[in-house]
Computed example of a mutant assay.
Amino acid sequence: MSAMNNDVKDGRSLTERIASVLADRIITGRIAPGERLLQDHLATEFGASHVPVREAFRRLEAQGLVCVEPRKGVRAAPLDPHAVIEVAKMRAALESLALREGAARLTSSDLQRLDALIDAESSAQGVEALETLNAQFHGALLAPCKMPYLLSSIADLHRISARHLFATWSRLDWQARSGDEHRRIVAALRAGNIEAACAALAAHIIDAGNALAEVLPGR
């Protein structure tokens, strides 16, 4: 297939679709840390030339999900406790910035949606359902900042955090605590205390990062 046929199905380019599928497999652990990603096999699977596969690898490398090693090929990035802490610190800083910029635009209906997501989290079964709701909560919390470059960076970091959560979920007892911390953030926003909400958000992210790093396999 020619690289000229990159565009299509569901409005996304072939490169975007390949990158999305591989990201999902890496995040959920279906592609294990350190596992090789074979360009020829993937090109065959997706009915593609090597060009969109290589471009997908570059995107995944930029997101911290794969390592490209000269003369050795491409592997799923390892799970590193130091990376968990680094990502948590970056998320805490950037998400606090986004909340500070957008909190004044949160409406009562926005806060009600956040409440509903927290309620759904409390009864979620399994890590996939919980992570989906967690991503929706953080997304709804931060979207009013209307800063697309910032939100894009946060989304990349969140994907890395999600991978660590999938890898450690069976050793964590985090669900109830996460819900309580989400409620604390929303309560501060309802009280009009934006700085308290930002501090609670940052603490929530840092605490989660520390918990993930502590139980990461091979630590």
Results as ranks from 00 to 15, higher is better:
Leu79Asn: 12
Leu106Phe: 01
Glu101Cys: 08
Arg184Gly: 05
Gly102Ile: 05
Ala199Glu: 14
Leu141Thr: 03
His158Tyr: 10
Leu212Thr: 00
Arg105Ala: 14
Ser96Phe: 08
Ala197Asn: 06
Arg17His: 01
Val53Ser: 05
Thr168Pro: 07
Cys67Val: 08
Ala211Pro: 01
Phe46Glu: 11
Ile154Arg: 05
Leu117Trp: 04
Val87Trp: 00
Arg100Leu: 09
Ala48Cys: 09
Ala83Gly: 07
Val127Gln: 13
Gln175Glu: 12
Arg25Trp: 04
Lys89Arg: 14
Arg100Gln: 11
Ala208Pro: 00
Gly64Pro: 10
Glu214Asp: 13
Ala23Pro: 07
Lys146Val: 01
Ser108Arg: 10
Leu97Cys: 05
Lys72Met: 14
His204Trp: 01
Lys9Gln: 14
His164Phe: 15
Asp180Leu: 11
Leu38Trp: 10
Asp115Gly: 00
Arg71Val: 09
His164Val: 02
Pro81His: 11
Val21Met: 09
Phe57Met: 09
Gln125Thr: 13
Ser178Asn: 11
Lys72Arg: 15
Gly29Met: 06
Glu35Gln: 15
Pro33Cys: 08
Val74His: 13
Leu212Ile: 01
Glu69Gln: 13
Met1Ile: 06
Gly179Leu: 11
Ile18Tyr: 12
Ser152Lys: 15
Ile18Lys: 04
Pro81Asn: 13
Leu172Ser: 02
Ala191Gly: 12
Ala129Gly: 02
Arg91Asp: 08
Arg219Trp: 03
Thr132His: 15
Leu130Ser: 14
Glu195Asp: 04
Ala93Asn: 09
Ser178Arg: 13
Arg91Cys: 10
Met147Ile: 03
Ala120Val: 00
Ala62Ile: 02
Pro78Phe: 13
Pro52Ala: 12
Ala116Arg: 09
Leu97Ile: 09
Ala62Gln: 13
Ile26Gly: 05
Met90Tyr: 08
Asp10Leu: 11
Gly11Glu: 02
Ile18Asn: 07
Glu121Leu: 14
Leu142Phe: 04
Ala43Phe: 12
Glu131Gly: 10
Gly209Arg: 00
Ile85Ala: 05
Thr28Met: 06
Ser13Arg: 00
Ser161Arg: 15
